[in-house]
Design a binder for these strands. Structure first.
Length: 428
RNA sequence: GGAGACGUAUCGAAGAGGUCAUAACGAGCUCGACUCGAAAUCGAGUUGUCCGCAAGGGCACGUGGGUUCGAAUCCCACCGUCUCCGCCA
């Protein structure tokens, strides 16, 4: 949610900054409603003040044995009037809120306008692997090795699911262990949150109402709408940890990471070139999350990107880091870096981590504040998130990068401690 | 799933239609006094938010409705916590 005062004071500025994201905002109706709303607030509060005075008066008059019929009749009137105004007010507020909810976050000043085409690669690690044999697609490799079972995955969950088996399951778990180890080393607190969340959690994250159809919803038996959903990313849980709290400045930043599977409908997003585990309905991810004071969020974002990149680097995978143009950042974010790993069979880079600074956008939606030590005033915190990492594209990258002519795959060294020291995946 | 109890400030807790919601009482915390210093004692302070240039008002007793001139207090629904019973990994 954007700062309503900023829109009031400088709608043109907000309009320009949203335009960088390709979002066209028109505030004329909003401003009109806002003026009307504030007028009504003043009216109703005047009446309420009168009511409060009378409420103190009535018992006094009664005690003195005086007649209160007249004042009570007058108050009946005031009460009806107040109710009427409050109804109008609620209507206007709802409309205003709905509009506010629909506005994405404003991109940071150093983020360029435009869409994907303006993304800028800022760092490249390693180079494309070269093979002296015909390299295989990861689906073929993992099926030969018997470590991912797509057929039975579909049997169990339908298309878009798979089963990790044998060394595949161990490799997956090794990756997660490797990530967790690094985060713990860096002093991040490990969390294991619920995977089923309330609607409010999706709202705070900025996921709802706009993108509520991207998640698996859990319907109530009665009525319409949904009260819970299965999380599409641990970010949705982590951003709600401190909802409606006032944090202590000296205790910030909070640095968390959580492992959860991520569940996404991905309706209509199937592409042939993404066969395998590039885009599934469920994938494993470790998510990093920070709550910071505003002046520290920029540095925190750099830290998160650095951490995510270091993980990919530790695996020795060729990847690049891009700074996204405004239009390619998701709605809640002011600035985003993507880390993309090279997938040889796709002849393309695929995202393995997205690191973003939401500024105070999510904090406003979730009412997450901290108290300034110096002034005693409350202020919204900044929230940041970064995958660290999602495995579903790392595992294909690993098997494709490290495949050998005989169909075996060299296991990256950092993972071997969790593979019983094993150095290579071979067909059993 | 059944039965019941309870949600009030940082915590415990009183209030049971108006005269107690900047909320009694107790504790904590902050500042000050006393002290060489500390403890004890004494004094002061200690929620958030909205409208307003300000003066000054409004709102919030889990949440949302209702009854009433007036609701923390009565009624309804929902959420949460706890206890007992049943079922269960």
């Amino acid at each position: 949610m954007l700062d309503i005062n900023l829109i009031r004071q400088n709608p043109e500025l907000v309009r320009e900054r949203l335009a960088k994201k390709g979002f066209e905002a028109d505030f004329t109706e909003f401003i009109a409603i806002d003026g009307e709303r504030r007028k009504l607030i003043q009216e109703t509060e005047l009446l309420k003040a009168e009511k409060n005075k009378a409420s103190a008066e009535i018992p006094r008059l009664k005690k003195e044995g005086l007649d209160t019929t007249e004042i009570m009749a007058r108050m009946k009137q005031v009460s009806d009037q107040t109710r009427q105004i409050d109804e109008q007010l609620a209507e206007l507020s709802a409309r205003q809120q709905e509009f506010l909810d629909s506005l994405p976050n404003m991109p940071a000043d150093d983020v360029v306008a435009g869409g994907k085409e303006n993304n800028k690669v800022i760092k490249v690690f390693g180079s494309k692997p070269e093979f002296d044999f015909a390299p295989k697609h990861h689906v073929d490799i993992v099926e030969n090795l018997g470590i991912i079972d797509y057929t039975r995955g579909a049997k169990l969950g339908g298309s878009g699911f798979w089963v990790y088996r044998q060394d595949g399951a161990r490799l997956e778990w090794a990756l997660l262990n490797y990530f967790m180890q690094e985060h713990l080393k860096d002093g991040y607190e490990m969390l294991l949150p619920p995977h089923i969340l309330t609607y409010q959690c999706g709202y705070t994250a900025g996921q709802f109402p706009k993108f509520k159809d991207d998640v698996f919803q859990l319907r109530r038996d009665d009525g319409d709408g949904f009260s819970h959903f299965i999380l599409p990313t641990a970010e949705t849980a982590l951003v709600n940890m401190h909802r409606d709290e006032i944090l202590i400045e000296a205790e910030l930043p909070f640095k968390y990471f959580a492992y959860t599977p991520c569940y996404r409908k991905e309706a209509g997003s199937y592409r042939a070139e993404e066969r395998g585990m590039i885009r599934g309905h469920q994938f494993n991810k470790i998510e990093m999350f920070q709550y910071t004071v505003p002046e520290q969020s920029d540095a925190a974002l750099e830290e998160l990107v650095g951490k995510a990149a270091a993980l990919v680097e530790g695996l020795g995978l060729h990847h690049r880091i891009s700074k996204l143009a405004a239009g390619d950042c998701s709605a809640s974010m002011t600035k985003t870096y993507d880390i993309e790993v090279w997938i040889p069979s796709m002849d393309d880079y695929k995202e393995v981590s997205s690191a973003s600074n939401a500024g105070d956008y999510q904090a406003r939606r979730g009412n997450m504040r901290f108290r300034r030590q110096a002034s005693g005033k409350t202020e919204f915190v900044h929230t940041l998130n970064a995958s660290g990492l999602a495995t579903s594209r790392i595992l294909p990258a690993i098997v494709e990068h490290y495949q050998q002519a005989d169909g075996s795959v060299i296991i990256p060294e950092v993972l071997r401690p969790w593979m019983g020291g094993q150095e290579r995946l071979t067909a059993k």
